[in-house]
């Protein structure tokens, strides 16, 4: 059991990092802040499949605004009901960050192919869109079992790192993720899996079948930090402190405002806690 700072030190510059969509309290906000403090650079973020909820979108946006990110592969980045992600939009229109646009089921299929150690997955749809035209890792092929039937082959995705926040770890280091199956798919495909957890229990999830159904086994997990509140401003009941996200969105509308916000909420907040 370690700290978010230690986890952040395990993510090298240039790493590809897969992030959850943040509909539930799985966005690893505290770990993202630790990455910003460590001055991470050239990260390649992959959202599974989008970070378009207020908190997950804010997390991606602050990483971009802090200069940690070179590329984003995504089906969507926004602050959800609170509108566009300001730093993401600025970085894409200026060219400071390269965006690789995807569509949700294609990211899932490519990540699941990665988890199965297969070279690619195939998917229907997509053909005739500019998404397909802009990418060389998606290729239209003939269905080998039914010539003339076209499908898209999607190159598998195996991220260097998966990072997320989970509700519980047990004494063996198993993570309870409940219905949040996306965390399972991200972990299966990734070389290193780093998690912050809300609580640590002195039991074993496998002693209870109802709990065992929602477990990510310890053998996928590289390191865990016990960090209550690490998904804030999303609380563990999946409610969000929208005022906190609004304050971020307001600040991030200008580059100077964003840098002030980072100084206050990421750098100074940590010093005060120490």
């Amino acid at each position: 059991m370690t700290t978010p700072e230690t986890l952040a030190a395990m993510i090298p510059d240039g790493a590809s990092v897969i992030l959850p969509k943040g509909e539930g309290p799985d966005a690893p906000v505290a770990l993202a802040k630790a990455l910003i403090r460590r001055g991470a650079r050239d990260l390649h973020l992959i959202t599974l499949p989008a970070c378009a909820a207020p908190v997950s979108g804010m997390m991606v946006d602050m990483l971009i605004g802090a200069g940690c990110v070179a590329r984003v592969e995504t089906s969507g980045v926004s602050l959800g009901e609170l509108g566009p992600a300001p730093a993401f939009n600025r970085a894409v229109t200026s060219g400071a960050v390269t965006v690789t646009d995807a569509t949700c089921p294609a990211l899932y299929a490519a990540v699941q192919a990665g988890g199965k150690s297969q070279p690619f997955a195939t998917l229907r749809g997509i053909i005739g869109s500019d998404l397909e035209r802009m990418r060389d890792d998606w290729v239209v092929i003939d269905n080998p079992f039914q010539p003339g039937d076209k499908v898209v082959a999607l190159k598998a995705i195996n991220p260097d790192v998966a990072m997320f926040h989970a509700p519980m770890a047990d004494r063996e280091g198993n993570l309870w993720i409940g219905r949040g199956r996306d965390l399972l798919y991200a972990a299966h495909a990734s070389k290193v899996v780093l998690a912050t957890v809300e609580t640590v229990v002195d039991t074993c999830f496998y002693d209870d079948d109802a709990l065992a159904a929602g477990v990510l086994p310890a053998f996928y997990v590289s390191a865990i930090a016990h960090a209550p509140g690490a998904s804030l401003p999303m609380r563990m009941d999946a409610t969000v402190d929208l005022d906190a996200v609004r304050a971020y969105a307001g600040a991030a509308r200008s580059e100077a405002g964003l840098q002030d916000w980072l100084a206050r909420e990421v750098f100074a907040a940590r010093s005060a806690a120490e």
């Binding site: 989008a50 089906s75 969507g76 980045v77 993401f88 939009n89 229109t93 646009d101 569509t103 997509i126």
Partner: peptide, 12 residues
Amino acid sequence: TVRWSGSFGSAY
């Protein structure tokens, strides 16, 4: 010149 959030699941 104007960037929106992205295509989400539309292409499928």
